[in-house]
């Protein structure tokens, strides 16, 4: 057996692995702070206030009692994505949209690592093939990281 065969096999395996990784949707582990799927509050604010570029579809996937007190103008209320009802509503809302639509998800119910809603929502959209999904990174909660900074909010459903 030529000596180059094992080397070629390893090379082919590595190439295949890299290709599969590049094609598969990002997993929720990518939502670690600092990852490319996240938008910081100031970045989202600039995006919403900019006259240029595509406007995102902004979806709140958190609990309703928090949303009713204050939410980002233009956001649509979906419901808590930690339960089936919320995920069903999310699926229904986006099913007719093109998969390259810019969608921004947010919650802010509790500290980032404990939020039960953003990861299921993000995973759902990835599973449906959406490839332009961002998640608003709220480190502590919506009050501290958005409202207290003086960023715009409205209340009500």
């Amino acid at each position: 057996m030529p000596k180059s065969i094992p080397f070629l096999l390893v090379f082919a395996l590595a190439l295949y692995s890299a290709t599969v990784r590049a094609q598969s949707p990002s997993s929720s582990s990518d939502l670690a702070p600092g990852s490319a799927q996240l938008l910081n509050p100031d970045e989202l604010l600039k995006l919403l206030q900019s006259n240029a570029g595509e406007k995102p579809l902004l979806l709140n996937v958190g609990p309703s009692l928090l949303y009713m007190q204050a939410h980002i103008p233009g956001a649509e209320y979906i419901g808590a994505a930690s339960d089936k009802q919320g995920l069903d509503k999310l699926r229904a809302r986006v099913k007719s949209l093109p998969h390259d639509k810019l969608i921004v998800l947010y919650c802010g119910c509790c500290p980032w690592s404990h939020c039960p809603n953003v990861r299921p929502a993000y995973n759902q959209l990835n599973a449906m093939g959406f490839n332009h999904v961002k998640v608003l990174y709220i480190a502590n909660n919506f009050g501290t990281d958005w409202v207290d900074k003086g960023y715009p909010t409205i209340k009500g459903q």
């Binding site: 009692l65 007190q69 802010g108 509790c110 909660n141 919506f142 009050g143 501290t144 409202v147 209340k155």
Partner: peptide
């Protein structure tokens, strides 16, 4: 069980706890 109105009367509860 709380409400948005009660939360607002305490300055807003925009994150828990």
């Amino acid at each position: 069980i709380g409400s948005a109105g009660l939360a607002e009367s305490y300055g807003g509860v925009l994150g828990l706890p």
